[in-house]
Nucleic acid binder design. Structure first.
Lengths: 180, 180
DNA sequence: ATTGCCTATGCAACTCGTTGCATAGCAGGA
DNA sequence: TCCTGCTATGCAACGAGTTGCATAGGCAAT
């Protein structure tokens, strides 16, 4: 299970509340690990009981109070242990690929708008990544270790989106060929 | 939920038992949709109750009897309906990426053997895909619709593995730089 | 004024997915 | 001969993840 560890990393990078974590998961971390606020709140409570994280109640005015979490020593130890354990290579779950094979038993042209939608959403994401790269890593030569590691993960996201866009073009060409 | 649909596609391509489906999911379909035999048996029973698939008991000698499933009309209809519904763009769950960001809080060099293991496993998979492509699609110009769609999905897998390999090299270079 | 959105946390119920185990006959090798 | 491994199906229990809903104050726009 990596949700605990993803949360720990996020809290080490920057302490925050469950709500803030949920938003980070919607943005940066969610590129490679998704989680809803429900999951996050539940896991935070478990991690707190286990002593992995410390909590501090923060009174705000104009908005609801929040609980700011930060990584505690046992959490860091757990993270270090996990880093030493091998993890399985990731598995992909690609619903669109199922659909493409399914299209052989229906009209393949039916899929064209769907693939185009996907293409657009990947193009948008790629554009966001590239903007973020410009903003956060303008001078790659002058980065600390943490930034270099964040950057290489972002480059992975960028290359994934580029590859996916090219593949979706390939898919569209195939579907058009079959529709003629 | 796409497991039902993935199973339907697989049964349309070729009827088979739960066991055979599980093996197909380990090989070809598992590239983009994984499932254990437990999940498959459970879903098959549900699909049978719903009338999506038909079952025929086959007595074998020298090995246990099996139940051979095939797609029924209501299943085909359900698949056609699903094809017309939009699906969400896939989400990636990349544990290694979490580890890479976590490495900033430990010794980054620790990750090198792990990344190399992943690199090797992706290289092996790519080799298998390429061999399979040679075997199943030797003459891309002479393929029917079904084969063309299967082929474009396989090309997606191939490009994914190529991209991942290049990225893992990038990660290794970054880790080595940080270790100096 | 009302509507809708944002911050912030949480419960309850559900489905999906994993893990460990069980059965059972047959084949092949040490 | 025993052990391992393959075919074939399944139960039981658990853990992960999703969905719908609830509360509650503040802010901005219509």
């Amino acid at each position: 299970m990596a949700l605990e560890h993803a949360i720990l990393v996020s809290l080490l990078e920057q302490p925050g509340s469950g709500y803030e974590l949920a938003r980070r998961f919607d943005r940066s971390i969610g590129r490679f690990w998704t989680a809803t606020h429900q999951q996050i709140y539940r896991v935070l409570r478990r991690m707190e009981t286990d002593g992995w994280i410390a909590v501090e109640a923060v009174v705000q005015d104009g908005r609801p109070d929040k609980k700011v979490y930060s990584a505690a020593d046992p959490g860091r130890t757990a993270l270090a242990d996990w880093l030493r354990e091998p993890v399985e290579p990731e598995t992909v779950r690609h619903e669109l690929a199922v659909k493409i094979r399914a299209a052989a038993f229906e009209d393949p042209a039916l899929l064209i708008p769907e693939v185009e939608r996907h293409r657009e959403s990947h193009a948008t994401l790629l554009a966001r990544y590239l903007t973020g790269e410009q903003r956060d890593f303008p001078d790659p030569a002058a980065l600390g270790a943490r930034q270099q590691l964040q950057h290489v993960v972002l480059r992975g996201g960028i290359e994934y989106e580029r590859m996916t866009l090219a593949w979706l073009d390939d898919v569209l060409a195939t579907l058009h060929r079959l529709a003629d």
